[in-house]
Design a protein around this nucleic acid. Structure first.
Length: 643
RNA sequence: GCCCACGUAGCUCAGUCGGUAGAGCACGUCCUUGGUAAGGACGAGGUCACGCGUUCGAUCCGCGUCGUGGGCUCCA
């Protein structure tokens, strides 16, 4: 032999001697052993590469499995190539565009003369399974960019040529499995047989490079997993998401509707939905008053000139309804609340002693959203922001932002959210305000986060043009992240509206303005809550907290008296006095997701008790009415200390 | 806005290869008074989203409008 030896360092620190020219896969498995099938790719000196990569020098090696994000990426990326091959085999005239791995799967965009039908998807999936069964190896080829362009021109793949013409790298990498060749950075799993469970999910239209001026392509979404069980679990999760859909639950529980006759993106709150909203709003108002906010109201329309001053006419027009003419002037339906709060601030001369001033409003705004983006309660045209604007001195930013953060986390926790993702967005390219101001404010935001030990990520350049911001995303029970809360510094409006306060020095100074919302929009937050709780609101928010069910007509008066006792101490109770069997009444109360069912028959009536059944079947036994009230009280107090 | 699919009773959905429609649930009346997720009988309920066209005839076919759903860079 006499071949040169190289040293491989594994993640656990062990070193292994291998002949130079071995592959990454061989080096990971060790001499004479076969590679564990979980290993999909390798990190060579920290760079993600194929297992077939030939090693010529000493290197550190790390196995990559499906468990890591990179592993999932490789797996799904290989999957999408398999799907693309299936499409090309069945529909040779389809052209390849792009096909990346995405969070929970993959897609591939094709240029094709017609959309793919569900029947096409079935055939494509079948063919993909055959390709997997054939276990064709993925082979990497590298060639000069020009040559790659020639290859794809020959194959009639115009989009690949377009991609190649837009990249700088003088060499391009191509991957093939069998007859199929695709431009691809890689890496890939060693062969198609490594994809254990693959499923195509849906087809959709998508623009080339996401630009609506470009041609529409046909996108196919799919996903893949290393075991059938994992795929089934994923599909079950998709079913669960459907089951929790707030549009479905909103209708089923008779909480809200959005109706054609009224208009897209405009929400009707039915009595039970309105009651939950009222409870949310009451909580919000109480807490804001306690936190030193002053609550205000503002009109739904204002002169267009106000929106010229604020800059919305210039920067926000495409999201505004068209103005309406009234007498000699034009009026604008409000897309935001800030100008109104600013005008309240401006209605007096302000002293440095007055600051900070905190104005809060559940302000309903109207924004024109393109029809295609409207979605249930999550994206609407009329919604209520839990808005507030803080006016403070520059030295107060950190304290104020800190207070907002504490307040936000408190409110979100009360609504049952315990996991958060926090982002700090810094100065974008196009920005107003001096760089020093940005630096100072960004540092204050960061200091407020740090002093609370909040873990956060920086989104460089993602701030709004008028100032840096902190965004907080909440994670629901299914692990989905939703952005609700935001805290934004605004250098723009104080300038535009010439805001001022008199300082200790007797001179005019410009205040800092902070926009903030905790829930974002009540509509959206309500939709998220509905999905988070799957409609089973906690007792403090449940529109009906207890339903009294009589077994026969004989207990009707008693049932009503129990309802009366509950109402007298402030709980929301209803009686079901209908001539129906108790099983039927329980079924209905279960479906309405009412937290407590109080069953009353002759026995209970005699003893002055109720039989308590908790939501989803728990038998809590028979007890005096006061004991049932204590039960509800304890339940509410757990979520809402002090009630 | 754009691509595709869809719009039938209050809800969920069948159906009509063109001859003005059906189920389940819900609703109403009656019977039943039943102890922890559906008791029974009968009944009422529809301009088949809207408009225009083709046709002897349109809910069905064509075009348009409105609405809903999925999607529209997570960049080889």
């Amino acid at each position: 032999m006499g071949s040169r030896q190289i040293h491989i360092t594994l993640p656990d620190g062990t070193r292994r001697s291998m002949p130079a020219g071995c592959t990454a896969g061989e080096a990971l498995s060790g001499p004479g052993k076969s590679l564990s099938p979980e290993i999909l790719a390798a990190k060579v000196n920290g760079v993600l590469m194929d297992l077939a990569t030939v090693l010529k020098e000493d290197a550190s090696l790390e196995p990559v499995t499906f468990e890591s994000p990179e592993g999932k990426d490789v797996y799904r990326h290989s999957s999408t190539h398999i799907m693309a091959q299936a499409v090309k085999e069945l529909f040779p005239s389809a052209q390849l565009a792009i096909g990346p791995a995405i969070e929970e799967g993959f897609y591939y965009d094709f240029a094709f003369e017609r959309p793919f039908t569900p029947g096409d998807l079935e055939k494509i999936e079948e063919r993909a399974h055959e390709i997997i069964k054939a276990d064709r190896p993925f082979r990497r080829m590298e060639m000069p960019r020009q040559e790659a362009i020639r290859v794809f021109k020959e194959r009639g793949e115009g989009y690949k040529v377009d991609i190649l013409e837009h990249i700088d790298d003088p060499t391009a990498s191509l991957y093939s499995q069998g007859e199929f060749i695709d431009l691809c950075r890689g890496p890939h799993v060693p062969s198609t047989g490594r994809i254990a469970a693959l499923k195509l999910l849906s087809g959709a239209g998508a623009y080339w490079r996401g630009d609506e001026r470009n041609p529409m392509l046909q996108r196919i979404y799919g996903t893949s997993f290393p075991t059938q069980a994992a795929l089934d679990a994923h599909l079950a999760k998709l079913e669960e998401i459907k089951r929790r859909d707030h549009r479905r639950l909103g209708k089923e529980l008779d909480l809200i509707t959005i109706q054609d006759e009224i208009g897209p993106g405009l929400v009707l709150w039915h009595p039970k939905g309105a009651l939950i909203r009222l409870l949310i709003e009451n909580f919000w108002r109480e807490q804001h008053l306690q936190q030193g906010y002053e609550l205000v109201y503002s009109p739904h329309v204002a002169r267009l000139d106000l929106w010229r001053t604020s800059g919305h006419v210039d920067y926000y027009r495409e999201n505004m309804f068209v103005p309406m003419k009234v007498e000699a002037s034009e009026y604008q339906l409000k897309p935001m609340n800030c100008p109104f709060h600013i005008m309240i601030y401006k209605s007096h001369l302000r002293s440095y002693r007055d600051l900070p001033i905190r104005y809060g409003e559940l302000g309903t705004v109207y924004r024109y959203e393109r029809t295609g983006v409207l979605h249930g309660l999550l994206r609407v045209r009329g919604f209520t922001q839990d808005d507030a604007h803080l006016f403070c001195r520059p030295d107060q930013i950190e304290t104020e932002v800190g207070r907002v953060l504490d307040f936000t986390f408190f409110v979100l926790r009360t609504f049952g959210f315990s996991e958060f993702e926090v982002y700090l967005s810094t100065r974008p390219e196009k920005a107003v305000g001096a760089p020093e101001k940005w630096e100072q404010a960004t540092a204050a935001l960061e200091a407020a986060l740090k002093s609370r030990g909040v873990a956060y990520r920086i989104d460089p350049g993602e701030g709004v043009f008028y100032g840096p911001k902190i965004d907080i995303k909440i994670k629901d029970v299914l692990g989905r992240a939703w952005q609700c809360s935001t805290v934004q510094i605004d250098f723009n409006n104080p300038e535009r509206f010439e805001l001022a306060y008199t300082g200790e020095d007797g001179k005019a100074h410009q205040p800092i303005m902070i926009h903030r919302a905790l829930m974002g929009s009540i509509e959206r937050f309500f939709g998220i809550l509905l999905e988070h709780y799957a409609g089973a609101f906690p007792t403090w928010l449940a529109p009906v907290q207890a339903k009294v069910l009589c077994i026969t007509d004989r207990q009707r008066a008693y049932a009503e008296s129990v309802v009366g006792q509950l109402k007298a101490v402030g709980y929301r109770a209803e009686a079901d006095l209908r001539n129906e069997k108790v099983g039927f009444k329980i079924r209905e109360a279960e479906k309405a997701k009412i937290p407590y069912m109080l069953v009353v028959g002759d026995r209970e009536m005699q003893a002055g008790t109720v039989s308590v059944r908790g939501r989803s079947g728990a038998d809590l036994g028979s007890m005096p009415v006061v004991a049932a009230i204590d039960l509800i009280r304890a339940d509410v107090a757990q979520a809402m200390p002090g009630r």
